[in-house]
């Protein structure tokens, strides 16, 4: 029974990692990365590594999306200003 949950967690991580690679738009990819982080944290918990799971949770749930989205916003705004000037 304990292996079943490990298999489910591994499958979920594999699927969400593939989706994260397959998504091209950075904003949508940030959403998928957030779900990937949660699934990774669950995998670490299932493999009895709660400290690593906690670090993964703390970083991926709010910090990485914020950094990614701020960077995307800055790049998009700079692009829009350039087009405005041309």
């Amino acid at each position: 029974m304990a292996d079943a949950v490990i298999v489910v967690a591994l499958l979920l991580v594999a699927a969400s990692a593939t989706v994260a690679v397959a998504t091209r738009d950075p904003m949508r990819q940030a959403l998928v990365l957030s779900v990937l982080g949660v699934v990774l944290a669950v995998l670490f918990t299932v493999l009895q590594a709660p400290d690593v799971g906690l670090s993964q949770l703390a970083v991926c749930s709010a910090l990485t999306p914020l950094l990614l989205m701020l960077a995307v916003r800055k790049v998009r705004r700079r692009g829009r200003e350039r087009e405005g000037e041309r």
């Binding site: 400290d51 799971g53 906690l54 670090s55 949770l57 703390a58 970083v59 910090l63």
Partner: peptide, 11 residues
């Protein structure tokens, strides 16, 4: 318990 400086600092 699980946790520590890194995790708590980020939270």
């Amino acid at each position: 318990s699980p946790g520590g400086g890194f995790q708590g600092g980020v939270v």
